[in-house]
Every structure is written in structure tokens, then in C-alpha cells.
Design a protein around this nucleic acid. Structure first.
Lengths: 262, 262
DNA sequence: TACATGCGTCTCTTGTAAGAGACAATTTTG
DNA sequence: CAAAATTGTCTCTTACAAGAGACGCATGTA
């Protein structure tokens, strides 16, 4: 995708949002609901997106009428509506890779017992598009749709393969380089990782997002050289070298099946 | 679409939409893409929703930036984006009935070999929310998200059970009463059907949407007396009485399992 | 009984976004 | 190769939506 439009001189935080466009408010509302993951009162919603109450009421009413939002059963709360589900299904239908990728992920997690995920770039961030929990007692599953800084993940390294330094820098903020445990990644190391991942065709990271897991990821191509998604397995950090190698082999085979012209 | 805010003295077709609100335009765009079911050029999109080209470009850019739409790979076409898929998944997650209903439908179609569907009311129209094709050589599957006039379907009769005459009339237009083959249903007959369906707890229609199938539907309750959805099987019209009865029995059992406080 | 807090609706003003239209650059058609 | 149609961008005007805030009605709580 070309992000060309916004030269991004510096997105300074205008404290006063003054007159905000209705559509933008709506986009914020949807994003807010996506993060809260639950129905919320309209008043709270207004606070949450920092919008005037009256405006929020108007917009919510439009959205509810349109079916993008629904009043939650109990009373005066709103959440996503059926329309969004239908549009989402349309997206899946129009997207072979996603459709087949979901199946493959489900299959992989059943087959290996490990948590398996399908990941894509989503407006410059790593996004778990579909995940299927493993059978382990402690399953570390992040919710679908969760967005995580690219440098925290193995998939992130693969998704950026093929981009030049400038493009990578544009996608990674300084905060992104700080791992959950406080360690700070060096940008050069990250870029080196990306290059290496691009060559080897897979990526393994250990103890990055948490101390107990490692992540095995392989790329899925939408065209030769173009990484459209990744599939990954989240396994205990003490998984043997041998099993790790086996799993990577398995992943690579499956990803090859998904890829187009890879 | 109802423009609810205006008192709607008479919904005459204002040829000139004058200054249309951006959000409404967006809603129309989404709805339009939902009906076309494919990526479309921005120019055509503008024509399709009857909006000025310049406005359409602006809105589409916003939506693409937000991830609700995506530029389709080949060039200058747009279609639904990943964000909508993610929001849709959020909806599913927050909606027990839909989640379990989908599973049940998949299961039913595998078990019986017939096409099975989960249906709900969506802004006053009957909507196929999920469907799973049967194993017959000729499978008559309507796409998910398809909206069909209520009187054409068995499910429609169940979904309106419990509403009074005025409410029903408000939901059914005159056009809706005209079947695909040109026959015209009498409103009174339809209302009588609804009442009957409400009492018997299931509904069978033969040869309504087409001449070759009949539709067996049962209600799913979200609260005692409140029909939230229906599950139905689409079977050949010459299915024996006996098998029909068996299938209805099966459906009723499964629907009961889905219902809450039924 | 007063007092505070939250909800839903309404009114009025003004900053601004929708839209008309011009433009250059392709691409298509005949 | 010219004529016609499309695509993406830009500018400028004004109709109108975003927002401030008041209001009435519920709750909750001292």
C-alpha cells in the first residue's frame, strides 16, 4: 500500500481537536470499541474517544441505524453490529489467502498441539489476524486483532523483509524498540535480523514478548518476493532444537502451499 | 435507507441529494461494496453511490488509511479491508449466539447433508448470517449476508412471531409480498402464517423462493418469547414427509440447545 | 428532602467539509 | 493520430454538521 499521502512532517499532538470531522470520530469510535472488546455506555464512549457527548449520541445513532453498531441487550451500551460481521465475511470471501490461511492455522494447531497464528501487516503494525490455541495447559494466546510492535516478534522480521532501510524506519517508532521487559533493541540489530530472515526464509525469536515462549515464523507470499503474511507457532522456550527444526520444516511446507507464485 | 432524523413527511425521491453528510456517503459505499461483492474502481464507486467524484476520492482515502477499505492488488480498485474483518471477529466474539450458532449450522449440514443456515433480522430484513452448503449435487446456497424479503422465507415467519400487526406491517413493504415467480402474497395470509409459526414452534415453506426447495426453520430464543435468530435447512421439495418430520425434530433439539432461557 | 451524577434530547452558532469544476496525465476508442 | 473518456489532484465557496450547553428525567446517596 502506498502511504505516500502523509509526508508525516511531524504529527504533533494538537491538544485541542477543535472541530473534528464526523467520519474521523466514527473511525475512533470503532477503534476504541476494538480495544475495549466489550459493550460500553455512550457517555463513557464519548469520554473514551474524547468527543463531545452530543456529537457522540448523533454518530452512534447513525451507526446503530446502519447496523454497524448495536445496542447491547441489557440497556444503554453499544458494541459492534451485525453489519460489520457481514462486511468482515465479505473480506474473507474476497481474500483467498486469508481464507486458506485460517484453515491452515487451525489445522496446524490441531496437528502440533501448539498455538498457531496467522499474521499480517495492518496499517504499519503487526496484527494477529487469526489464531488457534494449542492444547498445552498454559496457552499463551493473544487475542485476534491484537496489534503488537513489529520488533517484538519473529513475524515482524519477516513481514518487513524486502523493504529498504528508510521504509523500515518509517514503520518502527522508538517506543516499538523497547521490549515488554524494558530491554531496548538496537535499530541496526533489528534491520540486520530482517535481512537475515529474508534470506533464510524463516525466523525464530526467543523470549522477546515474554520469557517463556519462542516464536517460529515463516513467510507467506502473495507474489514472488512479496511477503503478504506469516504463519507462526508459539512454543515453550525450552522446546528442543530438534523439535524446533521439525516444526519449522512443517511450517515452511504449509506456507509454501499457501503462497502464490512463491 | 431510512433517514430517521428527518420527520419523513413523505420519502419522496429528492433527485438532488444536495450536501450529503460524509458519514452517510461512507455507509452507502460500504453497502454498495457489500452488494457488488467485488473490488471496484473509485470512479465507478462514485457513480454507484451517486456521489461526486472528488468527495468519493477523499472519503475512500480516509477509509483506506483507516484500513476499513483496501486498494485491491491489481491497481485502482477498492474493497473491504482487514479492519472490517477484525471488527467482524470482535462481533462474533461478543456474541455467544452467533458463535455457537455458526458451529451448530456447520455441524447440521455435515450431519444431514442438507444446506443449513443461520438467519437473523438485520435492520428489518431477513439476513443469512451463516450458511453451510449441503452435499447434494445441486446445492442451492445463497451467499452469506444476503438480504431477502421476510415473506419469502420460513425463517421470516418465525422471526416476526410475537410482533403485533402494526409492527409487522411496518417491516414488510408491498414489494416484499411479491414472490420471485410473480405471485403476490396476501398480507393477512402472511400474518396468519406468523401467528401459526409462533404457536407450533417451527415453520415449513415449499417452493416460495424457488420451485425446487422447501425450507424448514425453527426459532432460536435469546430470552423467553424473544426470537433472536432461526436455524433452517433447505431441502429438495420432494423430501418425504417422514424425513421432513425427522429433520424438524433434529432442528428443534439443536435450536433448544442454542436458546437462552427458552 | 436536598444534592450530585448520568442519561437522552434539543437548540443555535460558526468553523469547515462537501461538492463543483478546472487541470494534467493516461488510457481507450474509432 | 485525434477525439473521447478516465484517473487522480487541487482550489474555492457556502451549506451544513460538529459542538457548546441548557433542559428534563431518572437514579443514587447523604
Amino acid at each position: 500500500m502506498q502511504d505516500g499521502n502523509a509526508p508525516a512532517i511531524s504529527a504533533d499532538e494538537k491538544t485541542t481537536a477543535s472541530r473534528e470531522k464526523g467520519l474521523n470520530r466514527v473511525l475512533e469510535i470503532l477503534e476504541f470499541l476494538h480495544t475495549t472488546q466489550r459493550a460500553i455506555g455512550i457517555g463513557d464512549l464519548a469520554k473514551g474517544v474524547n468527543a463531545p457527548r452530543s456529537t457522540t449520541y448523533t454518530l452512534v445513532r447513525s451507526l446503530v441505524d446502519a447496523g454497524l453498531l448495536e445496542m447491547a441487550g441489557d440497556g444503554n451500551r453499544v458494541y459492534f453490529g451485525k453489519k460489520l460481521y457481514l462486511y468482515g465475511m465479505d473480506y474473507v470471501r474476497g481474500n483467498d489467502l486469508l481464507r486458506r490461511g485460517r484453515q491452515e492455522v487451525d489445522h496446524l494447531s490441531r496437528e502440533t498441539g501448539e498455538t498457531s497464528e496467522l499474521c499480517m501487516l495492518q496499517s504499519g503494525r503487526y496484527t494477529i489476524v487469526h489464531s488457534s490455541p494449542g492444547t498445552r495447559p498454559f496457552r499463551i494466546s493473544s487475542a485476534t486483532g491484537l496489534q503488537i510492535p513489529l520488533p517484538w516478534t519473529a513475524s515482524g522480521r519477516l513481514l518487513l523483509a524486502g523493504l529498504d532501510r528508510a521504509a523500515i524506519e518509517a514503520m518502527v517508532s522508538d517506543d516499538d524498540l523497547v521490549l515488554p521487559d524494558g530491554r531496548k533493541l538496537r535499530l541496526d540489530d533489528f534491520i540486520a535480523d530482517i535481512a537475515k530472515a529474508g534470506v533464510t526464509g524463516y525466523c525464530v525469536t526467543s523470549g522477546l514478548v515474554d520469557a517463556y515462549t519462542k516464536c517460529l515464523a515463516v513467510p507467506v507470499f502473495s507474489a514472488p518476493g512479496k511477503v503478504e503474511a506469516t504463519m507462526c507457532l508459539v512454543v515453550p522456550i525450552d522446546t528442543s532444537e530438534e523439535r524446533t527444526a521439525d516444526l519449522i520444516g512443517l511450517l515452511r511446507g504449509r506456507a509454501a502451499g499457501l503462497s502464490i507464485g512463491g
